[in-house]
Design a protein around this nucleic acid. Structure first.
Lengths: 227, 227
DNA sequence: GGCATTATGACATTTATATGACAATCACAC
DNA sequence: GTGTGATTGTCATATAAATGTCATAATGCC
């Protein structure tokens, strides 16, 4: 059950961008490019958050915001406003009318996700990160636990991060260097070969599911459900 | 292995966004937020493409563009301009000065990737990451896997590269020497006859599709769907 | 047939990956 | 603090795979 985010934004380019970033981070997105379309999404199952462009056709953002806050159910859905840079009054007016936060266009993915997470954590601490599943293998970022057929797997933090990265980026080869950058972080000087060792530890932890982590000779490693 | 894209853009939010989208699509990114930083990236290994903001500090986009086009090597790197919406003259001026295409801010990830791919296809068709298909035979550079009717084929790195080259250059004879240059790389001293052996290994891997790799007596080999 | 070219199997060598061990470091309980 | 176990990165070694070359067989061409 991924969190669902309703994106209310009339400009298709920005809407696409928001959807892309959100989906890459594991959210489901609903899209609306006008007032009525936004209303059409406001029924069960309700979105978990609304990303609302301040200015959009068929009713400005504040109009929809006010409408939401009048409804007993809808008012509980957190709203993050999208404002143009420098429009300070917009932000103030938005926050005064019940918006939970705002993001200024243009935005970096990092900033966007950070704000969304903060807001969602504040409103509903449990709905945040989703469990990743691949067959019997599950990875739950919340409890920070990986299980196989509901049996907890024993692995270190690095292996957990590695598995998390793999599960969010399956069916794709990654060189040792890329894995170091993505899992260990950039500006970390660690031997390439160290990756091998952690791969082995991860495979060990996965026991009879170690085939999910595949060696691609001369290229790196790949997480794949196919043999 | 992955294409490298130099992003020249001063606004951090937009730069982050570009990097995020590009990296999600498997590109490596280099970042520069000013003229000098951009120049610092222009050495080997050269970026495969430059994404250039029209207006950025320490020299406008066109300035850098002109500089690039004066250099024999650098001029070959394709350039995609980032322009503000509505600035039609900018686009025209950019294209006149050698830019290969432009993307208007704000942009959707889909549009961005489409334009980049188009440009890269025009310049260097082999550097692309698209799945290659010939009948039931598929080669996916992203997962680094060759399949026949979705069954993974077992072959070594050299055979994989060889097949990749063939699939991107079908219906054309290549001498052993040409194959060595293209697949093994230049400055590699290897016997001509070695190619025969790898051809055989590739055919073996292709099993009942080995007819795709054809011998052209006295000339070399050819990858062809026609018998 | 006789010559030239290619196919194939075998093999030694090189290269890449897997694995076990270990010392240093870290996290946390006491 | 101090102790204790877990974790981490690195190394040495084992194992496995890939590579290039050769000798020889097979094939095509005149």
């Amino acid at each position: 059950m991924a969190s669902r985010i309703l994106v209310v934004e009339d400009e298709v380019a920005i809407r696409d961008m928001l959807s892309f970033v959100l989906e890459q981070h594991g959210y489901e997105t609903l899209e609306a490019d006008n007032y009525q379309a936004a209303l059409d999404h406001l029924h069960e199952p309700y979105p978990d958050l609304i990303l609302l462009d301040w200015m959009f056709p068929g009713g400005s953002g504040i109009q929809l915001l006010k409408f939401l806050k009048q409804d007993e159910i809808l008012r509980q859905i957190p709203v993050v406003m999208l404002t143009a840079r420098g429009e300070e009054e917009d932000k103030v007016r938005g926050l005064e009318n019940g918006a939970d936060d705002y993001v200024t266009k243009p935005f970096s993915p990092k900033e966007l996700m950070a704000r969304l997470k903060t807001v969602m954590r504040r409103v509903n601490p449990t709905s945040l990160d989703d469990t990743l599943k691949v067959g019997k293998l599950k990875l739950d970022p919340i409890s920070h636990r990986a299980t196989l057929s509901d049996t907890p797997l024993d692995m270190g933090p690095t292996e957990f991060k590695l598995l998390h990265f793999f599960m969010t980026h399956p069916e794709r080869v990654y060189s040792r260097e890329q894995l170091l950058n993505n899992v260990w972080g950039t500006n970390v000087y660690v031997e390439d070969r160290t990756v091998d060792v952690h791969i082995r530890r991860l495979r060990k932890a996965l026991s009879d599911h170690d085939h999910l982590v595949q060696t691609v000779r001369g290229a790196g490693y790949r997480f794949s459900t196919r043999s």
